[in-house]
Design a protein around this nucleic acid. Structure first.
Lengths: 198, 198
DNA sequence: AATGAAAGCGGACCACGGTCCGTTTCGACC
DNA sequence: GGTCGAAACGGACCGTGGTCCGCTTTCATT
Protein backbone atom coordinates (compact mmCIF):
# COMPACT_ATOMS: atom_id res chain seq x y z
CA UNK A 1 0.00 0.00 0.00
CA UNK A 2 1.07 3.52 -0.63
CA UNK A 3 1.65 5.91 2.20
CA UNK A 4 -1.34 7.87 3.52
CA UNK A 5 -1.89 11.12 1.83
CA UNK A 6 -0.23 13.56 4.14
CA UNK A 7 -2.88 16.27 4.21
CA UNK A 8 -5.94 14.12 4.76
CA UNK A 9 -6.89 12.20 7.83
CA UNK A 10 -3.69 13.18 9.56
CA UNK A 11 -3.50 10.77 12.43
CA UNK A 12 -2.13 12.62 15.46
CA UNK A 13 -0.14 9.53 16.39
CA UNK A 14 0.79 10.36 19.94
CA UNK A 15 3.86 8.53 21.02
CA UNK A 16 3.33 6.17 23.88
CA UNK A 17 5.92 7.71 26.18
CA UNK A 18 4.43 11.12 25.57
CA UNK A 19 0.97 9.94 26.53
CA UNK A 20 2.30 8.16 29.60
CA UNK A 21 4.15 11.24 30.75
CA UNK A 22 1.12 13.38 30.18
CA UNK A 23 -0.99 11.21 32.45
CA UNK A 24 1.77 10.94 35.02
CA UNK A 25 2.09 14.71 35.13
CA UNK A 26 -1.64 15.26 35.49
CA UNK A 27 -1.84 12.76 38.30
CA UNK A 28 1.22 14.15 40.03
CA UNK A 29 -0.21 17.64 39.81
CA UNK A 30 -3.55 16.53 41.22
CA UNK A 31 -1.87 14.78 44.12
CA UNK A 32 0.38 17.70 44.92
CA UNK A 33 -2.52 20.12 44.81
CA UNK A 34 -4.39 17.88 47.18
CA UNK A 35 -1.40 17.96 49.48
CA UNK A 36 -0.27 21.56 49.43
CA UNK A 37 -2.79 23.64 47.54
CA UNK A 38 -2.75 25.22 44.13
CA UNK A 39 -0.70 28.26 45.05
CA UNK A 40 2.28 26.35 46.35
CA UNK A 41 2.44 24.06 43.37
CA UNK A 42 5.69 24.39 41.47
CA UNK A 43 6.32 22.96 38.05
CA UNK A 44 9.56 21.45 39.27
CA UNK A 45 7.78 19.55 42.01
CA UNK A 46 5.24 18.20 39.56
CA UNK A 47 7.97 17.08 37.20
CA UNK A 48 9.93 15.43 40.00
CA UNK A 49 6.91 13.57 41.32
CA UNK A 50 6.03 12.37 37.85
CA UNK A 51 9.59 11.24 37.40
CA UNK A 52 10.28 13.43 34.38
CA UNK A 53 12.30 16.53 33.65
CA UNK A 54 10.90 19.99 33.97
CA UNK A 55 11.16 20.57 30.24
CA UNK A 56 8.55 17.87 29.72
CA UNK A 57 5.98 19.82 31.67
CA UNK A 58 6.32 22.72 29.30
CA UNK A 59 6.50 20.54 26.23
CA UNK A 60 3.22 18.88 27.18
CA UNK A 61 1.28 21.82 28.58
CA UNK A 62 3.01 24.92 27.33
CA UNK A 63 3.02 26.66 30.67
CA UNK A 64 2.06 26.28 34.27
CA UNK A 65 -1.28 27.80 33.42
CA UNK A 66 -1.72 25.27 30.64
CA UNK A 67 -1.22 22.47 33.14
CA UNK A 68 -3.90 23.96 35.37
CA UNK A 69 -6.22 24.30 32.41
CA UNK A 70 -5.68 20.66 31.54
CA UNK A 71 -6.63 19.66 35.07
CA UNK A 72 -9.72 21.80 34.83
CA UNK A 73 -10.74 20.30 31.54
CA UNK A 74 -11.58 17.04 33.19
CA UNK A 75 -14.02 18.64 35.60
CA UNK A 76 -15.36 20.82 32.87
CA UNK A 77 -16.15 17.86 30.67
CA UNK A 78 -18.09 16.26 33.46
CA UNK A 79 -20.08 19.43 33.87
CA UNK A 80 -20.75 19.73 30.17
CA UNK A 81 -21.89 16.12 30.11
CA UNK A 82 -24.44 16.85 32.80
CA UNK A 83 -25.79 19.67 30.65
CA UNK A 84 -25.87 17.63 27.49
CA UNK A 85 -27.22 14.40 28.82
CA UNK A 86 -27.75 14.71 32.55
CA UNK A 87 -31.08 14.75 34.36
CA UNK A 88 -33.35 17.79 34.06
CA UNK A 89 -33.70 20.59 34.82
CA UNK A 90 -30.02 21.12 34.02
CA UNK A 91 -30.05 18.49 31.32
CA UNK A 92 -32.57 18.21 28.50
CA UNK A 93 -36.20 17.53 29.20
CA UNK A 94 -37.22 20.53 31.27
CA UNK A 95 -38.79 23.72 29.87
CA UNK A 96 -36.19 26.21 28.63
CA UNK A 97 -36.66 28.73 31.41
CA UNK A 98 -36.15 26.11 34.06
CA UNK A 99 -33.09 24.90 32.25
CA UNK A 100 -31.74 28.43 32.07
CA UNK A 101 -32.16 29.00 35.78
CA UNK A 102 -30.68 25.61 36.55
CA UNK A 103 -27.78 26.51 34.32
CA UNK A 104 -27.08 29.68 36.27
CA UNK A 105 -27.13 27.96 39.62
CA UNK A 106 -25.06 25.05 38.48
CA UNK A 107 -22.50 27.14 36.67
CA UNK A 108 -22.13 29.38 39.68
CA UNK A 109 -21.51 26.42 41.94
CA UNK A 110 -19.09 24.96 39.46
CA UNK A 111 -17.12 28.18 39.35
CA UNK A 112 -17.07 28.46 43.09
CA UNK A 113 -15.81 24.93 43.49
CA UNK A 114 -13.09 25.26 40.88
CA UNK A 115 -12.24 28.84 41.72
CA UNK A 116 -8.68 28.23 42.80
CA UNK A 117 -7.85 26.20 39.73
CA UNK A 118 -9.61 28.62 37.41
CA UNK A 119 -7.66 31.54 38.76
CA UNK A 120 -4.44 29.57 38.52
CA UNK A 121 -5.22 28.76 34.91
CA UNK A 122 -5.57 32.47 34.23
CA UNK A 123 -5.97 33.60 30.68
CA UNK A 124 -5.32 30.11 29.34
CA UNK A 125 -8.69 29.21 30.74
CA UNK A 126 -10.41 32.47 30.00
CA UNK A 127 -9.44 32.22 26.37
CA UNK A 128 -10.38 28.59 26.18
CA UNK A 129 -12.45 28.49 23.08
CA UNK A 130 -14.19 25.21 23.78
CA UNK A 131 -15.42 26.15 27.21
CA UNK A 132 -16.54 29.67 26.48
CA UNK A 133 -18.08 28.54 23.25
CA UNK A 134 -20.05 25.71 24.77
CA UNK A 135 -21.38 27.77 27.62
CA UNK A 136 -22.48 30.75 25.61
CA UNK A 137 -23.88 28.59 22.85
CA UNK A 138 -25.97 26.72 25.37
CA UNK A 139 -27.39 29.91 26.82
CA UNK A 140 -27.94 31.27 23.35
CA UNK A 141 -29.90 28.20 22.40
CA UNK A 142 -32.09 28.45 25.47
CA UNK A 143 -32.75 32.12 24.83
CA UNK A 144 -33.73 31.26 21.32
CA UNK A 145 -36.11 28.57 22.52
CA UNK A 146 -37.61 31.12 24.87
CA UNK A 147 -38.38 33.36 21.94
CA UNK A 148 -36.06 36.10 23.06
CA UNK A 149 -35.38 38.63 20.36
CA UNK A 150 -32.30 40.73 19.88
CA UNK A 151 -28.60 40.00 19.72
CA UNK A 152 -28.70 36.61 21.35
CA UNK A 153 -24.94 36.11 21.14
CA UNK A 154 -24.42 39.28 23.14
CA UNK A 155 -27.15 38.56 25.65
CA UNK A 156 -25.69 35.12 26.22
CA UNK A 157 -22.24 36.45 27.06
CA UNK A 158 -23.81 39.16 29.18
CA UNK A 159 -25.65 36.53 31.20
CA UNK A 160 -22.53 34.45 31.60
CA UNK A 161 -20.27 37.33 32.59
CA UNK A 162 -21.67 37.83 36.11
CA UNK A 163 -20.93 34.19 36.82
CA UNK A 164 -17.20 34.74 36.41
CA UNK A 165 -14.96 33.90 39.31
CA UNK A 166 -13.68 37.42 40.03
CA UNK A 167 -17.19 38.82 40.03
CA UNK A 168 -18.45 36.12 42.37
CA UNK A 169 -15.54 36.64 44.71
CA UNK A 170 -16.17 40.34 44.77
CA UNK A 171 -19.83 39.84 45.56
CA UNK A 172 -19.50 37.11 48.14
CA UNK A 173 -16.20 37.74 49.86
CA UNK A 174 -16.10 41.47 49.58
CA UNK A 175 -19.67 42.64 49.15
CA UNK A 176 -21.11 40.48 51.88
CA UNK A 177 -23.61 38.66 49.71
CA UNK A 178 -24.52 35.07 50.41
CA UNK A 179 -24.43 32.50 47.65
CA UNK A 180 -28.21 32.32 47.83
CA UNK A 181 -28.48 36.04 47.24
CA UNK A 182 -26.27 35.76 44.21
CA UNK A 183 -28.36 32.93 42.84
CA UNK A 184 -31.49 34.95 43.44
CA UNK A 185 -29.95 37.99 41.81
CA UNK A 186 -28.92 36.08 38.74
CA UNK A 187 -32.34 34.49 38.47
CA UNK A 188 -33.89 37.93 38.53
CA UNK A 189 -31.43 39.11 35.92
CA UNK A 190 -32.23 36.19 33.65
CA UNK A 191 -35.97 36.82 33.97
CA UNK A 192 -35.47 40.45 33.03
CA UNK A 193 -33.41 39.56 30.02
CA UNK A 194 -35.94 37.00 28.86
CA UNK A 195 -38.90 39.30 29.42
CA UNK A 196 -37.30 41.58 26.92
CA UNK A 197 -37.21 45.23 26.06
CA UNK A 198 -39.00 45.75 22.76
CA UNK B 1 2.25 73.13 71.92
CA UNK B 2 1.67 69.61 72.95
CA UNK B 3 2.07 66.80 70.52
CA UNK B 4 -0.90 65.92 68.33
CA UNK B 5 -3.09 63.29 69.79
CA UNK B 6 -1.86 60.16 68.13
CA UNK B 7 -5.16 58.63 67.21
CA UNK B 8 -6.88 61.66 65.79
CA UNK B 9 -6.00 63.51 62.64
CA UNK B 10 -3.02 61.27 62.08
CA UNK B 11 -1.00 63.11 59.53
CA UNK B 12 0.47 60.53 57.18
CA UNK B 13 3.68 62.62 56.99
CA UNK B 14 5.18 61.27 53.83
CA UNK B 15 8.87 61.80 53.71
CA UNK B 16 10.00 64.01 50.91
CA UNK B 17 12.43 61.54 49.37
CA UNK B 18 9.74 58.90 49.41
CA UNK B 19 7.33 61.13 47.57
CA UNK B 20 9.99 62.14 45.08
CA UNK B 21 10.90 58.55 44.37
CA UNK B 22 7.29 57.64 43.98
CA UNK B 23 6.81 60.25 41.31
CA UNK B 24 10.09 59.38 39.63
CA UNK B 25 9.08 55.73 39.46
CA UNK B 26 5.66 56.48 38.05
CA UNK B 27 7.14 58.71 35.39
CA UNK B 28 9.86 56.24 34.55
CA UNK B 29 7.30 53.49 34.22
CA UNK B 30 5.10 55.59 31.98
CA UNK B 31 8.03 56.46 29.74
CA UNK B 32 9.22 52.91 29.49
CA UNK B 33 5.74 51.64 28.69
CA UNK B 34 5.52 54.24 25.98
CA UNK B 35 8.81 52.98 24.62
CA UNK B 36 8.51 49.23 24.83
CA UNK B 37 5.00 48.29 25.85
CA UNK B 38 3.54 47.02 29.07
CA UNK B 39 4.56 43.40 28.65
CA UNK B 40 8.26 44.06 28.32
CA UNK B 41 8.39 46.33 31.32
CA UNK B 42 10.65 45.01 34.05
CA UNK B 43 10.77 46.37 37.55
CA UNK B 44 14.52 46.56 37.35
CA UNK B 45 14.37 48.76 34.29
CA UNK B 46 11.90 51.08 35.98
CA UNK B 47 14.08 51.33 39.04
CA UNK B 48 17.18 52.00 36.99
CA UNK B 49 15.52 54.71 34.93
CA UNK B 50 14.18 56.37 38.05
CA UNK B 51 17.65 56.22 39.55
CA UNK B 52 16.66 54.13 42.56
CA UNK B 53 17.17 50.59 43.72
CA UNK B 54 14.79 47.80 42.89
CA UNK B 55 13.76 47.43 46.50
CA UNK B 56 12.23 50.88 46.38
CA UNK B 57 9.79 49.83 43.70
CA UNK B 58 8.42 47.14 45.95
CA UNK B 59 8.48 49.33 49.02
CA UNK B 60 6.39 51.95 47.24
CA UNK B 61 4.03 49.79 45.25
CA UNK B 62 4.14 46.36 46.81
CA UNK B 63 4.46 44.52 43.54
CA UNK B 64 4.75 44.98 39.84
CA UNK B 65 0.99 44.78 39.65
CA UNK B 66 0.72 47.46 42.28
CA UNK B 67 2.84 49.74 40.15
CA UNK B 68 0.54 49.14 37.20
CA UNK B 69 -2.47 49.82 39.36
CA UNK B 70 -0.95 53.09 40.49
CA UNK B 71 -0.48 54.14 36.89
CA UNK B 72 -4.07 53.22 36.16
CA UNK B 73 -5.35 55.18 39.11
CA UNK B 74 -4.48 58.42 37.44
CA UNK B 75 -6.56 57.61 34.38
CA UNK B 76 -9.29 56.21 36.53
CA UNK B 77 -9.55 59.39 38.54
CA UNK B 78 -9.94 61.43 35.40
CA UNK B 79 -12.72 59.13 34.31
CA UNK B 80 -14.45 59.28 37.66
CA UNK B 81 -14.22 63.05 37.58
CA UNK B 82 -16.00 63.13 34.25
CA UNK B 83 -18.80 61.09 35.79
CA UNK B 84 -19.04 63.20 38.90
CA UNK B 85 -18.74 66.63 37.42
CA UNK B 86 -18.27 66.33 33.69
CA UNK B 87 -20.75 67.35 31.01
CA UNK B 88 -23.92 65.35 30.49
CA UNK B 89 -25.01 62.82 29.54
CA UNK B 90 -22.14 61.06 31.31
CA UNK B 91 -21.99 63.69 34.01
CA UNK B 92 -24.93 64.98 36.03
CA UNK B 93 -27.71 66.86 34.36
CA UNK B 94 -29.12 64.30 31.96
CA UNK B 95 -32.04 61.96 32.69
CA UNK B 96 -30.96 58.78 34.48
CA UNK B 97 -31.49 56.45 31.55
CA UNK B 98 -29.35 58.57 29.29
CA UNK B 99 -26.70 58.70 31.95
CA UNK B 100 -26.80 54.95 32.31
CA UNK B 101 -26.34 54.35 28.61
CA UNK B 102 -23.60 56.96 28.47
CA UNK B 103 -21.95 55.19 31.37
CA UNK B 104 -21.91 51.91 29.55
CA UNK B 105 -20.42 53.33 26.39
CA UNK B 106 -17.86 55.38 28.22
CA UNK B 107 -16.81 52.62 30.56
CA UNK B 108 -16.44 50.22 27.67
CA UNK B 109 -14.19 52.64 25.82
CA UNK B 110 -12.21 53.28 28.97
CA UNK B 111 -11.64 49.58 29.49
CA UNK B 112 -10.63 49.10 25.87
CA UNK B 113 -8.16 51.94 26.03
CA UNK B 114 -6.59 50.81 29.27
CA UNK B 115 -6.86 47.11 28.55
CA UNK B 116 -3.16 46.36 28.55
CA UNK B 117 -2.57 48.15 31.82
CA UNK B 118 -5.65 46.66 33.43
CA UNK B 119 -4.55 43.14 32.57
CA UNK B 120 -1.05 43.87 33.78
CA UNK B 121 -2.47 45.13 37.07
CA UNK B 122 -4.28 41.83 37.46
CA UNK B 123 -6.02 41.14 40.70
CA UNK B 124 -4.58 44.24 42.32
CA UNK B 125 -6.91 46.18 40.06
CA UNK B 126 -9.79 43.76 40.16
CA UNK B 127 -9.84 43.87 43.90
CA UNK B 128 -9.45 47.58 43.98
CA UNK B 129 -12.12 48.57 46.37
CA UNK B 130 -12.35 52.20 45.37
CA UNK B 131 -12.81 51.56 41.68
CA UNK B 132 -15.26 48.71 41.89
CA UNK B 133 -17.13 50.50 44.62
CA UNK B 134 -17.46 53.74 42.74
CA UNK B 135 -18.59 52.13 39.53
CA UNK B 136 -21.19 49.85 40.99
CA UNK B 137 -22.45 52.51 43.35
CA UNK B 138 -22.94 54.86 40.44
CA UNK B 139 -24.94 52.29 38.51
CA UNK B 140 -26.88 51.41 41.59
CA UNK B 141 -27.80 55.04 42.11
CA UNK B 142 -28.97 55.42 38.55
CA UNK B 143 -31.04 52.25 38.80
CA UNK B 144 -32.61 53.60 41.93
CA UNK B 145 -33.43 56.89 40.23
CA UNK B 146 -35.02 54.91 37.42
CA UNK B 147 -37.33 53.26 39.90
CA UNK B 148 -35.91 49.81 39.33
CA UNK B 149 -36.97 47.35 41.98
CA UNK B 150 -35.09 44.34 43.18
CA UNK B 151 -31.59 43.70 44.43
CA UNK B 152 -30.00 46.81 43.02
CA UNK B 153 -26.55 45.94 44.30
CA UNK B 154 -26.66 42.70 42.36
CA UNK B 155 -28.11 44.20 39.23
CA UNK B 156 -25.43 46.87 39.27
CA UNK B 157 -22.60 44.35 39.36
CA UNK B 158 -24.36 42.28 36.73
CA UNK B 159 -24.49 45.28 34.44
CA UNK B 160 -20.86 46.09 35.05
CA UNK B 161 -19.58 42.55 34.59
CA UNK B 162 -20.02 42.36 30.80
CA UNK B 163 -17.87 45.49 30.51
CA UNK B 164 -14.86 43.68 31.94
CA UNK B 165 -11.74 43.50 29.83
CA UNK B 166 -11.67 39.72 29.34
CA UNK B 167 -15.30 39.65 28.26
CA UNK B 168 -14.79 42.48 25.81
CA UNK B 169 -11.72 40.84 24.37
CA UNK B 170 -13.59 37.61 23.94
CA UNK B 171 -16.46 39.34 22.17
CA UNK B 172 -14.46 41.61 19.93
CA UNK B 173 -11.26 39.75 19.20
CA UNK B 174 -12.59 36.25 19.30
CA UNK B 175 -16.28 36.45 18.64
CA UNK B 176 -16.04 38.84 15.73
CA UNK B 177 -18.24 41.56 17.19
CA UNK B 178 -17.56 45.19 16.45
CA UNK B 179 -17.33 47.71 19.24
CA UNK B 180 -20.61 49.20 18.01
CA UNK B 181 -22.32 45.86 18.32
CA UNK B 182 -21.12 45.50 21.85
CA UNK B 183 -22.35 48.96 22.72
CA UNK B 184 -25.70 48.15 21.15
CA UNK B 185 -25.85 44.87 23.00
CA UNK B 186 -25.12 46.45 26.34
CA UNK B 187 -27.69 49.16 25.71
CA UNK B 188 -30.27 46.50 25.03
CA UNK B 189 -29.23 44.67 28.15
CA UNK B 190 -29.55 47.79 30.26
CA UNK B 191 -33.01 48.50 28.87
CA UNK B 192 -34.13 44.98 29.71
CA UNK B 193 -32.82 45.27 33.23
CA UNK B 194 -34.47 48.61 33.77
CA UNK B 195 -37.77 47.48 32.26
CA UNK B 196 -37.90 44.94 34.99
CA UNK B 197 -39.34 41.55 35.62
CA UNK B 198 -42.04 41.95 38.27
C1' DA C 1 16.44 -7.63 13.86
C1' DA C 2 18.40 -3.55 11.79
C1' DT C 3 17.88 1.21 10.49
C1' DG C 4 16.88 5.98 10.40
C1' DA C 5 14.55 10.03 11.34
C1' DA C 6 11.30 12.48 13.88
C1' DA C 7 9.46 13.18 18.31
C1' DG C 8 10.42 13.41 22.93
C1' DC C 9 13.31 14.07 26.93
C1' DG C 10 16.14 16.22 30.73
C1' DG C 11 18.30 19.37 33.36
C1' DA C 12 21.62 23.19 33.07
C1' DC C 13 20.66 27.76 32.24
C1' DC C 14 18.40 32.38 32.11
C1' DA C 15 15.30 36.31 33.37
C1' DC C 16 12.47 38.45 36.33
C1' DG C 17 9.58 39.19 40.43
C1' DG C 18 10.12 39.58 45.16
C1' DT C 19 12.79 39.55 49.87
C1' DC C 20 16.14 40.97 53.30
C1' DC C 21 19.02 43.53 56.05
C1' DG C 22 22.98 46.62 56.79
C1' DT C 23 23.43 51.50 55.63
C1' DT C 24 21.73 56.13 54.63
C1' DT C 25 18.60 59.92 54.86
C1' DC C 26 15.06 62.64 56.77
C1' DG C 27 13.10 65.77 59.83
C1' DA C 28 11.22 66.57 64.66
C1' DC C 29 12.78 68.21 68.73
C1' DC C 30 16.08 70.38 71.54
C1' DG D 1 23.52 73.22 64.48
C1' DG D 2 23.29 68.72 66.96
C1' DT D 3 21.04 64.49 68.22
C1' DC D 4 18.29 60.58 67.52
C1' DG D 5 14.72 57.34 66.15
C1' DA D 6 12.09 56.13 62.44
C1' DA D 7 11.56 55.61 57.75
C1' DA D 8 13.50 54.74 53.41
C1' DC D 9 17.11 53.01 50.47
C1' DG D 10 19.90 49.75 47.58
C1' DG D 11 21.45 45.89 45.66
C1' DA D 12 22.96 41.18 46.63
C1' DC D 13 20.29 37.21 46.94
C1' DC D 14 16.63 33.63 46.20
C1' DG D 15 12.83 30.88 44.04
C1' DT D 16 10.28 29.81 40.21
C1' DG D 17 8.56 29.97 35.48
C1' DG D 18 10.25 29.21 31.02
C1' DT D 19 13.99 28.12 27.26
C1' DC D 20 17.46 25.51 24.85
C1' DC D 21 20.02 21.97 22.83
C1' DG D 22 22.51 17.63 22.84
C1' DC D 23 21.05 12.99 23.87
C1' DT D 24 17.52 9.14 23.97
C1' DT D 25 13.37 6.76 22.71
C1' DT D 26 9.92 5.29 19.72
C1' DC D 27 8.17 3.15 15.73
C1' DA D 28 7.44 2.61 10.61
C1' DT D 29 9.76 0.41 7.21
C1' DT D 30 12.44 -3.20 5.42
Amino acid sequence: MSKDLPLLATAPVVRRDAARNREALLQAAAELIEACGVDDLTTEAVAARAGVGKGTVFRRFGSREGLMAALLNHREEEWQASVISGPPPLGPGAPPMERLLAFGTSRLRHHREQAALIEAAGSTWGENYAVLGFVSLHVRTLLSQLGVRGDLAYLATALVAPLGVPVLRQQIEHGGMSEEQVVAGWTDLARRVVRGAD
